[in-house]
Design a protein around this nucleic acid. Structure first.
Length: 441
RNA sequence: UCCUCGGUAGCUCAACGGUAGAGCAGCCGGCUGUUAACCGGCGGGUUGCAGGUUCGAGUCCUGCCCGAGGAGCCA
């Protein structure tokens, strides 16, 4: 405010709720929505949210003009409003601060809001996902998600990886096994990418260390708490890196993400009632066991499991519960992993592959390994898997022109967020989940 | 695709084979400290669909539709 004109009326400053403490004793204007209201006759408690937080606003009939009090009384849940008043510290207020209201501008009086302050079923909430996002729990989760994504980018950007994005529309399966979403490509068939890895292998031969980060699509009829049809995956890839180096990077990377969530999203984790003690333990090194050893553990547990099979969800949970930190299981049988895995030189029936299993039953968050550098092996595998060789000629080129040992892995963002937040189901970790029977909204 | 459970008011749920109810939300009234359920009142229903058994079906039987969890597959 310019001091030269003395006669100007000091307009209240616009503020955000998250920084309300800075404005104690001052008059401020907040722009937001009515989260909840308690009508106490001559006294109205308005819980107002603005995207950064929630604050209690108090309207006293005797202190405001009649139309302001009437406006307060008329407000419905989720009505948009601009409210002006004095910020005060008050022990009785949730959050420690409240606003003594002087003025209210009703921007829009909301119609009867479907999500009422009570329990609702999952189907109903998912049908109203576009509104459900306004709730404090969803706020906390999506803020953790944003922090996890930021940590992912920061880690790779600060450790010599170049972001090289990969296409979403692709001509063929990257890995023959999974089901792909098909789309018409002017008469040809294109598929929505289920991994950027093969393209990242091309990128590392140009740039050394790269990562790609984007949505991934799997047309699997999975109906579990760990599956989405559209999810986000980050995939680092490193030239001249072997399996051990891949695991070293993975454990450092996962630890970095968890640490960031713990330091920067503590209030959100508290909102989610996440017990952070187990997360505090997530520091390198992570335990490493071979597939053979894992099978041994499963048999000791009395679980039925045949050597050569891939682990199912109950097996992952049984293995992870032996460890406090995320667990690496390495050297899976060649047959249960993708065609591009490097064979173990000591035991050709095994591949230099690795999965990372999150603790507390959250299952596989990372899959990866060392990719084969040999043209001959790759040609043989493509044939064995009945993949169309023409589609992979460019990929084979990478083994013709300066092939090197290389490794990489993919980390699923939503599973990681579900684990860090301690959620029952992955569907809340993405703003608009795509699941079996769920394409709306 | 398989297994389990479910579908009753806008929402969350009750109701022995015998007149379909409650809470929340909405509307009306009351209250100066409420913390997702203050107090009183009011309106609100083709019990997922189609058949069947029965004097009588939300309830029992058959088929179908839809959904949720889990399995398989995977991050």
């Amino acid at each position: 405010m310019s001091p030269s004109t003395g006669e100007e009326i000091a307009l209240p400053e616009e503020a955000y709720i998250e920084e309300i403490a800075q404005y104690e004793g001052q008059e401020v204007t907040l722009k937001g929505w009515l989260y909840h209201k308690t009508d106490k006759g001559r006294l109205q408690f308005l819980l107002v949210r603005d995207g950064t937080g929630v604050i209690q606003c108090v309207v006293l009939e005797k202190d405001v003009p009649g139309q302001v009090f009437e406006a307060a009384k008329s407000l419905t849940q989720e009505s948009s409003l601009i409210v002006t008043g004095t910020a005060r510290a008050d022990e009785r207020a949730p959050g420690g601060y409240e606003l003594t209201v002087k003025e209210i501008e009703v921007v829009q009086l909301a119609q009867e809001y479907p999500i009422t302050p009570k329990e609702h079923g999952v189907t109903f909430l998912m049908d109203h996902r576009h509104l459900w996002l306004r709730s404090s729990r969803q706020h906390a989760i999506l803020r953790v998600r944003a922090e996890v994504i930021r940590a992912v980018r920061d880690y790779f950007d600060e450790n010599g990886f170049l972001l090289v994005d990969t296409p979403i529309l692709t001509p063929a399966a990257c890995e023959g096994t999974s089901t792909l979403f098909e789309t018409d490509y002017f008469g040809d068939t294109a598929y929505l990418a289920q991994s950027g890895q093969l393209y990242s292998e091309a990128s590392i031969m140009a740039f050394g260390k790269v990562y790609c980060f984007g949505p991934t699509f799997r047309a699997e009829k999975s109906k579990t708490r760990r599956h989405l049809l559209e999810f986000w995956m980050v995939e680092p890839e490193m030239a001249y890196a072997d399996l051990d180096e891949g695991m070293r990077v993975a454990e450092e990377f996962v630890s970095y993400i968890v640490e960031r969530a713990l330091t920067r999203r503590k209030p959100e984790l508290k909102t989610l009632k996440r017990d952070t003690a187990s997360l505090e333990k997530v520091k390198p090194p992570f335990p490493r066991i071979s597939y053979d050893k894992a099978v041994e553990i499963l048999h000791q547990e009395g679980l039925e499991f045949e050597w050569g099979d891939d682990f199912g969800s109950p097996h992952e949970t049984a293995l992870a519960k032996h460890f406090e930190k995320p667990l690496f299981v390495h050297r899976f049988p060649t047959l249960c992993k993708a065609f591009y895995m490097e064979p173990d030189p000591d035991r050709p029936e095994l591949s230099l592959s690795v999965d990372c299993l999150a603790p507390e039953g959250y299952g596989e968050i990372i899959g990866g390994g060392q990719r084969t550098a040999s043209l001959e092996i790759l040609e043989k595998r493509i044939e064995e898997h009945n993949l169309p060789r023409e589609a992979f000629e460019w990929y084979l080129d990478l083994r013709r022109y300066g092939s090197v040992p290389h490794s990489g892995f993919g980390l699923g963002i939503e599973r990681t967020v579900a684990w860090i937040c301690g959620l029952e189901h992955i569907r809340e970790t993405i703003p608009f989940p795509r699941m079996l029977h769920r394409l709306y909204p």
